[in-house]
């Protein structure tokens, strides 16, 4: 059964069709990579999934229920978590307070602080827990963003270019982290770093000019001439 299913999903911005006619089906438990050149419509697509922006056409089903018109917070409560491409954290609050806000919705008082500490340790930020989040280096702010996603213990974790701005070492840590998370969580990952994609994805969906141009296992996608022309640069 699909955890997430879209039918003919589309979004226009004035005359621009940023996403058109996308049918996507995510199996429970898989790691799906969503790739495509800049401006392909990846962020627009996942923003429709989580309800951050409204769809112009088509339908979205999540966990067996149609959610196309459901407000974002209700979808999140059903088990989606979304991490922004443009880092969106509570800059004035500490790292711990950021993560606590993510965790407190899903944890009772007895478990709260422990779960916060575990989540911080997951992304390696336990040493910076009491720093103001806005004072962290960019890469660490990305990790706060990821920690807020993980802290919600979601069924579907949507990550929009999470490794942007991370060092090589941090990227390796991130790959290990998502591998561990993926044992319990379905992951939809937008990613430009092709090594990360190949290391993590069970399947890959390729978007170009708002349309799905290919979908398949990593080896198939790598070999697909259409994809190579559109994205991998031939």
């Amino acid at each position: 059964m699909s955890l997430l299913l879209t039918e003919g999903l589309g979004r226009r911005f004035g005359g621009l069709e940023a996403v058109r006619d996308v049918d996507l089906a995510l199996r429970e438990g898989e790691v799906r990579a969503l790739i495509g050149p800049n401006g392909a419509g990846k962020t627009t697509l996942v923003s429709m999934l989580c309800g951050r922006i409204a769809a112009s056409s088509g339908r979205i089903h999540f966990a067996g229920r149609e959610v196309t018109r459901l407000p974002a917070h209700r979808r999140i409560r059903m088990g989606m978590a979304y991490t922004f491409q443009i880092t969106s954290i509570f800059a004035e609050l500490t790292v711990r307070e950021n993560v606590r806000l993510a965790v407190q919705r899903v944890a009772d008082d007895a478990a709260l602080e422990l779960r916060v500490a575990e989540t911080l340790a997951c992304v390696g930020l336990e040493g910076r827990a009491d720093q103001r989040a806005g004072d962290l280096a960019y890469g660490h702010q990305r990790l706060v963003e990821v920690a807020m996603g993980l802290g919600q213990a979601p069924r579907l974790l949507i990550l929009d270019e999470p490794t942007q701005g991370l060092s090589d070492g941090e990227v390796a840590g991130f790959v290990a982290l998502i591998r561990a998370v993926a044992r319990e969580t379905t992951v939809l990952l937008i990613e430009h770093n092709i090594d990360v994609v190949m290391a993590l994805a069970d399947r890959i969906t390729v978007l170009n000019f708002g349309r799905v141009i290919a979908e398949g296992a990593p080896a198939e996608i790598r070999a697909d001439p259409v994809v190579q022309e559109a994205y991998l640069g031939g």
Binding site: C50, R52, A72, H73, I76, R77, Y82, F84, S88, I89, F90, A91, E92, L93, L101, A102, R105, M148, Q152
Partner: peptide, 10 residues
């Protein structure tokens, strides 16, 4: 502090 982030935390 960040209304959209709060909404997208549920």
């Amino acid at each position: 502090e960040n209304e959209e982030r709060a909404r997208l935390l549920g």
